[in-house]
Nucleic acid binder design. Structure first.
Length: 695
RNA sequence: GCCGAGGUAGCCUAGCUGGUUGGGGCGCCUGACUCAUAAUCAGGAGGUCGGGGGUUCGAAUCCCCCCCUCGGCACCA
């Protein structure tokens, strides 16, 4: 690393449409820890982030809540600022993308891309609602996925195959607002020539630093295929595209926040252009794995096209699991920062320690309250907290003031810890960083134990003082070295040791001075089983409720609607969130009996079933539908063995338009219940003949 | 199926340019100590290093095959 350069650290922007949870923190806390260490080591750092305020989900949600988009954004912007402050994630600037300065910067960059010929207009067919008299953006459209036939929304096949849909791709579009049938109408939109950046990206990704999880994905995508990127939308809410009644796609303007927020952070201090135009800084993005594509493909291409500086590193954090299960807001496997953690009154440093120390930054982090309690009680408190307190307390009680006499061995141990921390930071290994100071703490406990100052105080006061001063030196070094991870606690504790850790640099860890000790307070409060049981119960109740909801129990519905409203919001900018099935959102439009009669539904008998080669999900079935035996392809291979299917009676939609999948023709569709994506086959209550009509 | 990342004691991990008995930490067992938040210190038990072949005097480390987990792509009429 080039030490002379200023470093700009950014975090993926939280989407101002939902509350902060443990998944967000998985990225923000390590980034903050990294920044605090850099500063400790004397580097000049700028740390920015902000709310991502645009995009259809915010508009849709605001409308649902009877708010203006800005009002909804205000709520979550405040929320994020508050929780970040409380957990000591300290940005130099936390902006918002609906601010004027950000619009200005975005328009300037878009204009540069236009001037440089990287943006071109193209007529595309878009869903238009004749009733509402407007073009329908992404999420205002509902229709059928052209790839899998599932109900999908305008920009993504969210219920089915999960594909990203380009504007105009969706079939049978309907207006989500008034429910009427939408038509396709031509409209001019703008595209970014991503395809022209393929060679640049291949070269760039070879030089880009960061975690390999991010870099590997990105390389894979670039080598596959790049498509030009539609960067305008029909919305009111967003950054206006120059000269048109359109806004730029939210993923164009969101990363530009890194630039506009840097401008604000630099005000009165330095010229932001040195960073973003003259490459005089090292730019490091901390993100969640789900937005690697945007940061390693779209973003550098945009910057290159607009002749801005390029990021030097992309650091992607691994996934979060809760109680060993995939993180899921809808299923209750989530820890909300405000409602769960902060409300519990627990020391925020505990959570920071857990997030940093559980595992390597790139790996999956599992959160469970049980492990949480173990780590806090047995590691943080028993080792670090106990050492700090026993030493300081002993020193205060027996000496108060101590001379500067320190065992060389302790200084060596401190140096070792510093070296380990430096090395670990270079590799984005924050667990190794925190392990290094925990190891130093062990050394301290060991030293104290072996020196037996409680005996020495009676026999040899002078020798005792040296042993205690040595331990105090270790304690001081520990508060300094652990401050980036445990800022709240160490800031408080350092004053008992007679200094202010916030004003200390790394050199103070080794500087030998006399001590003046104040009566210390216990640094960390112990976690008791009752408290943990309480927190676990909250979580388990939430999970149980989510399960009930999934099973569609009546009586819960009212409540469910409310809770879903709060938690189903999309996140963007930091963590991967699983595609959540939202059955209650399907809100199918009514059809007439006549329309129903158009469906040729029958009971069919599966006479043959086999896997389709090279496919993970597809089975080729031969189904007796009464008058003939049909070949049907069904996406159930992950859940059903072919052998187990033969002879089974299943409902089948016979007059569905045939299609070919992986080269195999499918004439009909087997009906199944969908439990979170898992198909559950249905069988008639009594044995019936193949071909029996369903009504 | 293809690509990527992994599979090391109950849990988190180091080691992986091959070389003495595979290191830590948490938990567990025994002992010591009492300054300290039943914290600490010492000692100990616990591992077929995913499985099987191969290269080598010698492999957790290299090669081949297979299995499993996670993610990306293809695919869920």
């Amino acid at each position: 690393m080039d030490k002379a350069k200023i470093k700009l650290i950014t975090c993926g922007l939280p989407y101002a449409n939902g509350k902060a949870h443990i998944g967000h923190l998985r990225t923000y806390v390590p980034a903050d820890v990294y920044v605090k260490y850099l500063r400790l080591f004397g580097e000049e750092v700028i740390f920015v982030c902000g709310s991502d305020c645009h995009g259809t989900p915010i508009v849709v949600n605001a409308e649902k809540e009877g708010l203006k988009p800005k009002e909804l954004v205000d709520i979550y912007h405040e929320h994020f600022q508050k929780v970040f402050r409380e957990i000591n994630v300290e940005f130099d600037y936390f902006g918002r993308t609906d601010a004027e300065y950000h619009h200005k910067r975005t328009q300037e960059i878009v204009q540069r891309l236009l001037d440089n010929g990287y943006i071109y207009p193209k007529e595309i067919e878009l869903a238009y609602c004749p009733n509402c008299n407007r073009f329908l953006p992404d999420r205002y459209v509902e229709g059928v996925c052209p790839y899998c036939g599932a109900i999908a929304r305008g920009d993504e096949c969210d219920q089915g195959c999960g594909r990203h849909l380009e504007p105009g791709e969706i079939l049978e579009p309907r207006c989500k607002i008034c429910g009427s049938k939408a038509i396709y109408r031509k409209q001019k939109h703008y595209f970014f020539k991503l395809t022209e950046f393929k060679d640049f990206l291949l070269d760039y990704l070879g030089k880009l630093k960061g975690t390999e999880n991010a870099l590997n994905y990105a390389k894979q995508w670039v080598t596959m295929e790049l498509k030009d990127w539609c960067i305008t939308r029909n919305l009111e809410w967003g950054v206006k595209f120059p000269g048109e009644d359109l806004v730029v796609y939210v993923w164009v303007d969101a990363p530009i926040g890194y630039i506009s927020f840097t401008e604000k952070a630099c005000e009165g201090k330095m010229d932001w252009k040195d960073i973003w135009l003259k490459s005089k800084a090292e730019i490091i993005h901390f993100i969640g794995l789900d937005i690697v594509y945007h940061h390693c493909i779209f973003w550098p291409a945009m910057l290159k096209g607009a002749e801005y500086s390029l990021p030097n590193a992309v650091v992607a954090s691994g996934m979060v699991k809760v109680e060993g299960k995939t993180f899921s807001k809808s299923r209750g496997y989530v820890v909300w920062l405000e409602d769960d953690y902060l409300a519990s009154g627990l020391n925020t440093d505990f959570l920071r320690y857990y997030l940093v120390n559980y595992t390597s930054h790139q790996k999956d982090l599992n959160f469970s309250w049980e492990v949480f309690a173990d780590k806090i009680n047995n590691e943080l408190i028993a080792n670090l907290g106990n050492f700090l307190y026993r030493v300081t307390h002993f020193a205060w009680k027996n000496f108060g003031k101590l001379d500067a006499k320190v065992d060389e061995a302790a200084l060596e141990a401190i140096e070792t810890a510093v070296d380990k921390i430096k090395k670990a930071l270079e590799n984005w290994e924050f667990k190794a960083v925190s392990d290094a100071f925990m190891e130093l703490s062990s050394f301290g406990n060991n030293y104290f134990q072996n020196a037996k100052p409680w005996d020495l105080i009676k026999s040899n006061r002078e020798e005792c003082e040296k042993a205690v001063a040595t331990c105090l030196q270790l304690a001081k070094a520990l508060t300094i070295l652990s401050y980036p991870v445990l800022p709240k606690t160490m800031k408080e504790f350092s004053k008992f040791l007679g200094f202010d850790v916030k004003k200390s640099g790394i050199e103070d860890a080794l500087k030998v001075e006399g001590f003046e000790i104040e009566k210390p307070k216990i640094p960390f409060a112990k976690l008791f089983p009752e408290k943990i049981a309480e927190l676990e119960q909250t979580m388990h109740e939430r999970i149980a409720m989510a399960e009930k909801r999934e099973l569609g129990e009546k009586g819960e519905l009212e409540e469910v609607k409310v809770s879903v409203k709060v938690s189903e919001v999309e996140t963007r900018g930091k963590v991967k969130v699983e595609e959540e099935n939202k059955p209650e959102e399907i809100d199918m439009r009514e059809i007439t009996f006549e329309e129903f009669k158009n469906l040729d539904l029958r009971i069919g008998k599966i006479v043959k079933a086999e896997k389709i080669e090279k496919s993970k999900k597809l089975l080729r079935l031969e189904v007796d539908v009464g008058d003939e035996v049909r070949q049907v392809v069904a996406g159930i291979a992950e859940y059903y063995e072919p052998e187990a299917l033969v002879g089974k009676l299943v409902p089948i939609l016979v007059n569905l338009k045939p299609a070919k999948l992986m080269g195999v023709e499918s004439r009909g569709m087997i009906l199944a219940a969908d439990r979170n994506g898992e198909p559950i086959l249905l069988h008639p209550d009594k044995e019936v003949e193949p071909g029996t009509r369903i009504r």
